[in-house]
Write a protein that binds this DNA or RNA. Sequence first.
DNA 1: TGTACATCAGTGAACGCGCGTTCACTGATGTAC
DNA 2: TGTACATCAGTGAACGCGCGTTCACTGATGTAC
Lengths: 239, 239
Amino acid sequence: MTSPYPLSASSPVSETTTRRRAPRGQGGELRGEVLAAAMTLLAEPDGEDAMSLRAVAQRVGVSVPSIYLHFADKQALLDAVCEEVFAALDAAMQAAAAGASNVFDGLRLQGIAYVEFARANPEHYRIVMLRKHAYTAEQYADLVMASCAFQHFVDSVRDCVDAGVFVGEPDQLALRLWAAAHGLASLLVVKPYFPWPPLDQLIDDTISMAGMGLAAASRLSECADDLPALIARLDRLSL
Amino acid sequence: MTSPYPLSASSPVSETTTRRRAPRGQGGELRGEVLAAAMTLLAEPDGEDAMSLRAVAQRVGVSVPSIYLHFADKQALLDAVCEEVFAALDAAMQAAAAGASNVFDGLRLQGIAYVEFARANPEHYRIVMLRKHAYTAEQYADLVMASCAFQHFVDSVRDCVDAGVFVGEPDQLALRLWAAAHGLASLLVVKPYFPWPPLDQLIDDTISMAGMGLAAASRLSECADDLPALIARLDRLSL
DNA sequence: TGTACATCAGTGAACGCGCGTTCACTGATGTAC
DNA sequence: TGTACATCAGTGAACGCGCGTTCACTGATGTAC
């Protein structure tokens, strides 16, 4: 019933309330309640279809046009949801990285946290990562850069480059790692009925595979002779 | 206007035909035309929204209820489309593998063909791989196994295991490689506006990363001392 | 050879539904005079 | 201290739209007698 992770927006949302009108000057409260209700509805199975403005209004205990007091249209509400989800994803990854013993392990823990987030919040992951957005190139670039999650991830990759684990441009390397993590995450979200093996190990293996492969491949392109040394280093990092 | 790859279903489809009624006993022709029109509509941008039964009927030059003569409902038509797409994907991967110099390279070429298919047919890829399907576990397992694509891919992984490149269960290893390829494929489909680097290299790199990483990781879990030898072997395979 | 009939391929019109959005309105509350 | 008024939070009813699906029907064509 409640949102799967703490929302920055306030207020619990019950099933079918008749809401008390906000006191004067507190009209903005409704914005938070609408956003929270949208998040909750989207978290349910088939959330994307379930989140109509009518459903949101009913959850909050308010009439449908009231939503337009705080969101220009449905898309604006969805945009707000995306921001919320990106922030939560970023927080989960940052928290995971905090427990790392070295920069390479930190990257691995972030990757695992990424997939675990998708596993725990499949419908939210679907909205931000699997939906087609009607953005122009500029709008989209803005949105990606505005969300800290990808930037923080690139920073971690840069740390690894500085430590000599990878060779190359951090943002380019990050894309490749992101692809691997997103691949597993989206498969789990979209194909829940696939006969998956035990997920904890699959996730760890896939993330490790990407990290090791990138280390090996980015080195291969530079100096193919140095590989044994590279592998020895990876081994020392206690992957 | 025409479908992006040869359909097993016959018949060209023009914009707004008035179709001539099929001669007696040839009623089945319409099925192929409906399927082809659905494929064509789904290939367009926003294809998933654009493919309504009304739009399909108009493309074929037939009334809407006629579709029900050959498909039980809209879902049945979508199922038929999925079969068609899976078959085309399988064919593309098989063709790519035919040009390989060794089993490991064959896997790499299949991975590249997989991503290229998604890149060339983004809306078709979206339908089969990014949509949520309302299947039960059994229905879905049947569907996956019925489509040859995944089976053929597992076979190629098995060849690599036999050749000593990977260690482990072929279907388990295949899942990890699939995740990596699907990750990049779906990112390209869903986020066309992302500031991607040159795609040919990104694709090759990502696939190679997965292959090398899996080889290294699957060996790591067995005998951590043997890594230099493994890398030397990968190098010899001219990755 | 002619005709009644079954079959076949397809149609026209309507069904109810839920959707996003808009518009004119209501009624409580604080504030200026 | 009383009252007119502006502001604010929110509402009720309707808009047009496109959708999947159903139902009774049409008209051409082959076949049995």
